[in-house]
């Protein structure tokens, strides 16, 4: 069973099932609190019946004019709770908040080009590659060296003409400096 709820500052003591996973980054405390202070409705946890955190999502709103959008900063599900649709549940909520609260034109996220499972999942959720960000990720646990990222997007209802997405985005290369909003 799973239940979505707002993330709370004290959850930082209780998210080890997710954050001991090598693919989940551990930021300093201020990083999480900054998101909680600025975008509280974009920061949610999924818990089981015993109140154990199974995963969480944190995001933000950024950009200007037609680039105003929701961004997925982190999405993680603990290894024991994968293949249960939790990522979709959290992404649905982030999209709902982007669409109805922040009125963003699209939602975007970055994913390692080697992470085919995640790319496949996002494609199933309606995301497509908008551009390839060269050497966006630096090497870390389990990774040999720097790695490119795909910037994937999904248009929201405000983007009526679907101008926030493009065909063949995988062939469109940019540097990391070009993707800051």
């Amino acid at each position: 069973m799973s239940s979505l709820r707002p993330f709370h500052a004290l959850d930082l003591f209780r998210f080890n099932a997710t954050n001991l996973d090598p693919l989940t980054e551990n930021y300093d405390i201020s990083f999480y609190l900054n998101y909680l202070a600025r975008w509280p409705t974009y920061f949610c946890a999924v818990e089981n019946a015993r109140g154990r955190i199974m995963g969480y999502i944190m995001g933000k709103s950024e950009g200007h004019y037609t680039n105003w959008h929701g961004h997925v900063t982190a999405l993680t599900v603990a290894p024991s709770y994968r293949r249960l649709g939790l990522a979709k549940m959290m992404m649905d909520e982030l999209e709902r908040v982007t669409d109805s609260v922040y009125r963003g034109y699209f939602v975007d996220l970055f994913v390692r080009v080697s992470n085919e499972i995640a790319i496949g999942m996002y494609e199933k959720l309606g995301y497509s590659v908008y551009r390839r960000v060269v050497e966006y990720y630096s090497g870390g646990a389990g990774f040999a060296g720097d790695e490119d990222a795909f910037d994937m997007r999904k248009p929201m209802s405000r983007d009526k003409k679907k101008e926030s997405v493009r065909e063949n985005g995988r062939d469109y290369h940019v540097s990391p400096e070009e993707v800051w909003f």
Partner: peptide, 10 residues
């Protein structure tokens, strides 16, 4: 690879 607040919990 214990980091940040995990030092307090783990």
């Amino acid at each position: 690879n214990i980091k940040q607040v995990q030092n307090d919990t783990l």
